[in-house]
Write a protein that binds this DNA or RNA. Structure first.
Lengths: 137, 137
DNA sequence: TTTGATAACTTGCATTTTGCAAGTTGATAG
DNA sequence: CTATCAACTTGCAAAATGCAAGTTATCAAA
């Protein structure tokens, strides 16, 4: 991620990853694609958290530059683009899965969604394998 | 995390977690404690990435409020406090481990640290168990 | 063909977060 | 007592995010 605040550059693996998706929206965009199957700008715009249009556009560009996702023209609709996670992006499945497990354990809110975390709890390896294969969890 | 930009509130587990550590520094503070064994403000201040003093103070307070870490007076040094990850914080070990593995696979920088990710690659469960038990990986 | 709708952004400005660097306060050591 | 240290705090600047209106290219219908 090309932030003005210089990248961490510490060489630590956690820092390296956070340089790519350690902002407010990066991992949520990736989640929308991996877990919900979002593929277009409009679908991502209609995500659960209400990302701003300028931030979404910027994030998509940065994640594309980081090799996390790819952007191609939609052959069936000249106005639309298709965004897809690359293998590099899909390989973040274990991170998403374990974050969901952690949250399921500690989030006491009554309105918490449990679909994804329930699936992970039931079959963590299966969920990860499917996301890595480009399928829904 | 009490950010003015309203919390996501979507109910999604990933969003719940990012509300707590989805800022620029949260997960790095947690890493410093889990992976390096940092326990004092000074040790955290001397982290690999150069966090600002005001941000560190603020983050420690927020993470304490979120139940990720605890703060207690150092009985041997009246000027110092000891910060320790709670079980809730230590339960983020799988997330840290997965991030490290992912980065080891995709970070091509020659100066990348490989200690933690090598340990995870060799024995992911062992690393997670040790961190969860409050030990170093 | 024209008109209206739509997808994907872009733009201008406001608010919030992070960064820099100096400063303060309480505790310790000599 | 003075000097040093640990843990912040403070004031301001820079960067990131949010809001809401706007623009452009493409598609669909009349």
């Amino acid at each position: 991620m090309t932030r003005k605040h210089s990248k961490y550059e510490s060489g630590c693996p956690v820092a390296y990853a956070l340089d790519i998706f350690g902002d407010r929206w990066g991992l949520l965009v990736i989640r929308d694609m991996a877990v919900k199957g979002a593929r277009t700008y409009g679908e991502l715009q209609n995500g659960w958290e209400g990302i701003s249009t300028n931030i979404l556009a910027q994030r998509l560009k940065q994640l594309e530059e980081a090799g996390i996702l790819s952007k191609s023209k939609d052959p069936e609709n000249g106005r639309s683009y298709i965004y897809a996670l690359t293998q590099k992006g899909r390989d973040l499945a274990p991170v998403l899965a374990d974050i969901a497990l952690w949250s399921a354990k500690y989030n006491k809110a009554g309105h918490a969604m449990t679909g994804f975390s329930d699936k992970v709890r039931a079959d963590r390896d299966g969920v990860i394998t499917r996301i890595r294969a480009g399928k829904l969890p």
